[in-house]
Amino acid sequence: MTVAVIQFGGSNCDRDTVRALDTLGIDAQLVWHEDGLPADTSGIVLPGGFSYGDYLRAGAMAARSPILAEVRERAASGTPVLGICNGAQIGCEASLTPGAFTINRSARFQCERVPLRVENAETPWTSQYEAGEVLEFPIAHGEGRFEIADDRLEQLEAADRVLFRYCRPDGEVTDAANPNGSKHNVAGITGESDHVAVMMPHPERCSLSDLGGTDGQAILRTFADG
């Protein structure tokens, strides 16, 4: 039983994710994308970074690599899959989750800590939070603006598939609190089944107390149940 953290050329949050999972007592290993998933894979992380140099669109190349077919099969059979930052871009490009993450409204790379409001606390990823709870997570992305057709977003919201929204420290969701121009401040969503999720903020960067916060631990602990 191991969590496979898939490495592509240009991944750079892969080791951080393994370390954060190790710290939580969850067995995890780096898996080079050409090597395929280990037989005992119990969870999958698509980590952050700049796979394939963000050529064409962030995540576009990795999403079409052969290991994504394996990820899709595992996801269909119930294995939890989490895409973080570049992994979220890959997840959307691979249609594991709807929509797309594209260039920030500011047209700049943004690296900061931001408040996030928990929207749905009844998913495997958020069950240790309360709905409406405000967390603080780091973001570090140039292409994190969630884009999707308005009618499709309404369907997602009606189905309670938004995990987190960018908000003010008091929890109010406002345009000024939206760091990248994401539609309706969406920071993370689930796939058709809620054991597949993507998010632009980095839980692995706020899972060790030495790094100034542990709000992300609860998300990664989902893999302990896998």
Binding site: R57, A60, R64, E93, G99, A100, E147
Partner: peptide, 9 residues
């Protein structure tokens, strides 16, 4: 449709 364009965007 498979790669060069993203139908969402």
């Amino acid at each position: 449709e498979r790669l060069l364009a993203n139908p969402t965007l």
